[in-house]
């Protein structure tokens, strides 16, 4: 796994300071069928290659971040605050 994460608030930080929640996925509608919610909550692709995940900087600024990285090469493409772009 990538070992230095460029946090947009704290600068380059070791992965030990972070907690990984999982993939960034579009949230189903509240009244979506249970199968869709089941897939959203439990089913993952585990891809080899580019992947976007929610990481919590639990040992730092305590912000939720979107980390885009490559699971094969460990390259980190971008790290942004998860709240960015929200109203």
């Amino acid at each position: 796994m990538a070992s230095l994460i460029p946090c947009p608030h704290c600068g380059p930080r070791p992965k030990e300071e972070f907690t990984v929640r999982g993939a960034v996925l579009p949230r189903p509608a509240a009244d979506a069928p249970v199968e869709e919610w089941q897939a959203h909550v439990y089913l993952r692709e585990n891809p080899r290659g580019d992947y976007a995940e929610h990481w919590h900087h639990s040992g730092g600024c305590r912000r939720w971040l979107v980390v885009k990285r490559n699971t094969a090469t460990h390259a980190v493409h971008s790290v942004t605050d998860a709240a960015e772009g929200r109203p």
Binding site: R13, E17, G60
Partner: peptide, 9 residues
């Protein structure tokens, strides 16, 4: 610097 000290924040 906010970080980890061994196992704690």
């Amino acid at each position: 610097r906010r970080t980890r000290l061994a196992q704690i924040a």
